Amino acid sequence: MTKKKNTESIVKDIKRKTRRKFSAEEKIRIVLEGLKGEESASGICRREGIAPALYYRWSRDFLEAGKKRLMGDTMREANTSEVKELRGENSELKETVAELLLQNRVLKKSTNGLG
């Protein structure tokens, strides 16, 4: 019994150490091939040597990430540094306009008094 467990653990260790690791680019390429529909998902899985469950998990994750990204792009957050910077610039411009208006009024009053 212990010999069987020992053998199983050795096989698991070997599988774990020799497991193929896919980069993000490879995963995207595989998922996009499946989304094109030119080849069946099972055919792609056989060719790439992955389980169909893994392909479908990658596909779901890919679509969810895209959905989240698109939702984030349409809902702009008001606390980003860009928005804060624009608000500060807007305040400075308003102050400048107010100062120019005040100077303009002072000049008009002074020229009216001369004539």
Score class of each variant (00 low, 15 high):
residue 2 T to M: 14
residue 3 K to T: 12
residue 3 K to M: 12
residue 4 K to Y: 06
residue 5 K to H: 11
residue 6 N to C: 09
residue 7 T to R: 11
residue 7 T to D: 12
residue 8 E to L: 13
residue 8 E to Y: 10
residue 9 S to N: 02
residue 10 I to E: 07
residue 11 V to W: 03
residue 11 V to M: 02
residue 11 V to A: 00
residue 11 V to T: 03
residue 12 K to M: 09
residue 12 K to E: 09
residue 14 I to P: 00
residue 15 K to Q: 07
residue 15 K to L: 12
residue 16 R to D: 08
residue 16 R to I: 11
residue 16 R to N: 11
residue 18 T to C: 09
residue 19 R to C: 06
residue 20 R to D: 04
residue 21 K to Y: 06
residue 21 K to D: 06
residue 23 S to T: 15
residue 25 E to S: 13
residue 25 E to K: 13
residue 26 E to G: 03
residue 26 E to L: 02
residue 27 K to S: 04
residue 27 K to N: 00
residue 28 I to N: 10
residue 30 I to Q: 03
residue 30 I to A: 03
residue 30 I to E: 02
residue 30 I to P: 05
residue 31 V to T: 01
residue 32 L to T: 06
residue 34 G to M: 00
residue 34 G to R: 02
residue 34 G to H: 01
residue 34 G to V: 00
residue 35 L to W: 03
residue 36 K to S: 12
residue 36 K to F: 00
residue 36 K to Y: 08
residue 37 G to H: 01
residue 37 G to F: 02
residue 37 G to C: 00
residue 37 G to Y: 01
residue 38 E to M: 11
residue 42 S to F: 01
residue 42 S to Y: 09
residue 43 G to T: 04
residue 43 G to A: 07
residue 44 I to W: 05
residue 44 I to D: 01
residue 44 I to G: 00
residue 45 C to L: 06
residue 47 R to E: 06
residue 47 R to Q: 06
residue 49 G to K: 03
residue 50 I to Y: 04
residue 50 I to K: 05
residue 52 P to D: 02
residue 52 P to M: 06
residue 54 L to F: 00
residue 54 L to S: 10
residue 54 L to C: 05
residue 55 Y to T: 04
residue 56 Y to H: 11
residue 58 W to L: 01
residue 59 S to W: 03
residue 61 D to E: 10
residue 62 F to S: 00
residue 63 L to R: 10
residue 66 G to V: 05
residue 66 G to A: 05
residue 66 G to N: 12
residue 66 G to L: 07
residue 68 K to G: 08
residue 69 R to A: 14
residue 69 R to E: 15
residue 69 R to F: 13
residue 70 L to V: 13
residue 70 L to K: 13
residue 70 L to H: 10
residue 71 M to L: 15
residue 72 G to Y: 08
residue 73 D to L: 14
residue 73 D to A: 12
residue 74 T to F: 14
residue 76 R to W: 05
residue 76 R to T: 14
residue 78 A to N: 15
residue 78 A to K: 15
residue 78 A to Q: 11
residue 79 N to M: 08
residue 80 T to K: 02
residue 81 S to L: 13
residue 81 S to N: 15
residue 82 E to M: 08
residue 83 V to D: 09
residue 86 L to Y: 11
residue 86 L to C: 01
residue 86 L to N: 03
residue 86 L to E: 03
residue 89 E to G: 04
residue 89 E to V: 10
residue 89 E to C: 04
residue 90 N to Q: 14
residue 92 E to Q: 15
residue 92 E to T: 14
residue 93 L to S: 04
residue 95 E to R: 15
residue 95 E to Q: 15
residue 96 T to V: 12
residue 96 T to K: 15
residue 98 A to H: 02
residue 99 E to Q: 14
residue 99 E to I: 12
residue 99 E to L: 12
residue 99 E to T: 12
residue 101 L to N: 07
residue 104 N to R: 09
residue 104 N to P: 02
residue 105 R to W: 03
residue 106 V to T: 11
residue 106 V to W: 05
residue 107 L to Q: 03
residue 107 L to V: 02
residue 109 K to Q: 02
residue 109 K to G: 05
residue 109 K to V: 04
residue 110 S to I: 09
residue 110 S to M: 11
residue 110 S to R: 11
residue 111 T to R: 10
residue 111 T to M: 10
